[in-house]
Simulated assay, not measured.
Amino acid sequence: MNKLMVENIKQNMDEIIDRWIKAMREEKGERFFHFMPEHLVEKTSREFAELMTNNISEQGSINEDQINDFTEKVVRFGWAIKIVNKAIDNFSDVVFDLLEERGVIKDDNLRAFMRLFDNWINPLRESIIDAYSTEWERTVSLQKIALQELSASLIPVFDKISVMPLVGTIDTERAKLIMENLLEGVVSQRAEVVLLDITGVPVVDTMVAHHIIQAADAVRLVGAQCMLVGIRPEIAQTIVALGINLHEFKTKSTLQRGMQAALSMTNRKIVEVEGN
């Protein structure tokens, strides 16, 4: 029975892939099959078909390396876990329907083929989902580390003046990292004025504002002043609507204006020098 099934799948692989791609494009919220180049869709679809059909056996072994390679790729492409599950379901349905059309699956062997499909699909699904989850967690962890490294550094721009650009969502864990880097940087750089630039922070809610206020208080305790810059109009409206009190330290709408104010606070200013 396995041999007959494998032979029919191999003979009709092009049609199976075409039907599967069509089914995937009909999935709600699916983007890969609509927006990626056609050659990439075709290549990825064939790789998925090969991954699925390498295990058509009641006692089949699963190629873990092949699964890991594929899940790494689809995580990079942005496939959600829901799409991965749908991909497996759709492939199984397409193969089953085609075998029925070809007369391979009949009323007298339906139960046997259903058992064969269960032994084929279920272990494969479990292995794919496990590999996907592991790869997803690894990718998210790497992205989180990269974001932390990029967005929590105190940068000296002038003598006594430093800037910390903040990018992305600020949660409790990131707030701790920001606080540590901020205090260490203020002391090591002997900064007198620190500009916290929130241009790259998409949302400022009560929790984010609380972390910023804590950072400003900590900076004052080590003898420096803190200024909040990069306040966009929508952020200003949110801060007012939430009743967040930011009166304890200076605020400026842009980094440029903040830098001008910081220079003034350290008894300096920018002047134009006429050429000879």
Rank of each mutant, 00 (worst) to 15 (best):
N119C: 04
L147H: 05
Q237W: 01
K160H: 13
R232C: 00
S162F: 05
L246D: 01
E64V: 14
S162M: 08
I212G: 07
I105F: 07
V41A: 05
T266I: 15
N122E: 10
L40C: 06
S153G: 06
M164C: 09
E234D: 15
G29P: 09
V163P: 07
R268A: 09
D171R: 04
R138V: 03
I128E: 02
L255P: 10
L4Q: 14
I145N: 11
N276S: 15
I155S: 06
F32E: 05
S264E: 14
V201E: 01
I129C: 04
V6Q: 13
A236P: 05
R257H: 11
L195G: 02
L110I: 05
T266G: 02
I62S: 07
R174W: 08
W20P: 12
R19K: 14
Q66A: 09
T169A: 14
G200N: 01
W79H: 03
L98F: 05
A236E: 00
I145T: 10
N63C: 10
I62C: 05
V6W: 05
V201S: 01
F32M: 08
E26K: 14
V271I: 13
V240G: 04
R111K: 13
P156A: 13
E137F: 03
V193R: 12
E248Y: 07
L51M: 12
R125C: 05
A218L: 03
R46H: 11
I155A: 04
V74N: 03
N109L: 08
G243W: 04
M5G: 02
W79C: 06
I161G: 10
